[in-house]
Simulated scan of single mutants.
Amino acid sequence: MSEELQSQFDEFEKTGIIRRKLLPWWIKTFCWIFMILSVCGLGTLIGSAFSNNVHLSLYGFETNTAYSGVGIFLIAVMTFKGYAAYLLWFEKANAISIAKIDAIIGVVICIASMFVLPFTTGDGHIPIRLELLLLIPYFIKINKIEYEWDNLEKI
């Protein structure tokens, strides 16, 4: 009886933070930033119902209206990035695949804002998106730790 009781209490003492140690400090920092950003993005949807004074900007796309095509798109991207960050932070099994999708979507959106957006707005100059300097190493690092992440047993 006491052995069974002790084994049940052992479950509470296990830390379970193994996979998170595979993430470098900068990815951990961005996890928190994007989890907070996604909550703010969703809060913007609620807040903009009462006020039109909102400015959303991500990856070169920006809008002053949350209830527009670009606004909904940006909030959806922010929410997806927050979801990917949540999965990484809480060491979920599918976190790596979602993080890879997040990085690829980010790169595609950055490239679109660099090469498509200037011609649709009539501006003509091609801006360089510095976000690519973090998205590409993010994808590479996530790709490097994928095998170890998937094969680690959670304690």
Rank of each mutant, 00 (worst) to 15 (best):
W26Y: 08
N53Y: 06
C31D: 14
A76H: 05
W26C: 03
V39W: 05
T29I: 11
I75S: 00
S48K: 00
F73D: 00
V39S: 04
T29N: 06
L23S: 00
P24V: 01
Y59N: 09
L58E: 07
L23Y: 00
K28L: 14
G71I: 00
C31R: 08
N64L: 09
L37S: 14
G60W: 10
K28P: 00
I36G: 07
F30W: 13
W25I: 12
Y59L: 11
S38I: 09
S57R: 15
T63H: 06
Y59H: 10
V77Q: 06
K28R: 13
L45Q: 04
I27N: 00
T63D: 07
G47I: 02
K28N: 13
S51A: 06
F34G: 10
F30K: 04
A49K: 02
A76Y: 05
W26P: 03
T44Y: 05
A49F: 04
N53R: 12
I27T: 04
S51N: 14
N53A: 11
T29V: 11
L56R: 05
I27W: 02
L74W: 00
L37W: 14
N53C: 03
S51G: 04
S57Q: 15
P24S: 01
G60F: 11
C31L: 12
Y67F: 12
V77K: 02
I46R: 01
T65S: 11
V77I: 13
G43V: 04
C31K: 10
C40E: 08
T29A: 07
F50K: 03
I36E: 09
T44M: 13
S57T: 12
I27L: 08
V77G: 02
V70M: 03
A49M: 06
F73V: 03
M35F: 10
S68H: 09
M35R: 11
Y67C: 02
F34L: 10
V39E: 05
G71E: 00
F34S: 13
L45Y: 04
W26I: 05
S68N: 08
S57F: 14
F34Y: 13
S57N: 14
I72Y: 15
L37V: 12
E62V: 08
G41R: 04
W25H: 06
F50N: 01
S51Q: 04
A76E: 04
V70A: 03
L37P: 03
W26R: 03
A66M: 13
G60L: 09
P24N: 02
H55D: 10
G43C: 06
F61I: 15
I27S: 02
C31P: 11
P24A: 01
H55T: 12
A49E: 00
Y59S: 10
T65G: 07
Y67W: 14
I46C: 02
F34A: 11
C40I: 13
G41P: 07
T29L: 11
V39F: 07
Y59G: 09
N53D: 14
T29C: 06
H55N: 15
A76C: 12
C31H: 09
I27Q: 02
G41C: 08
T29R: 09
A66G: 15
F73R: 01
T29E: 04
M35P: 12
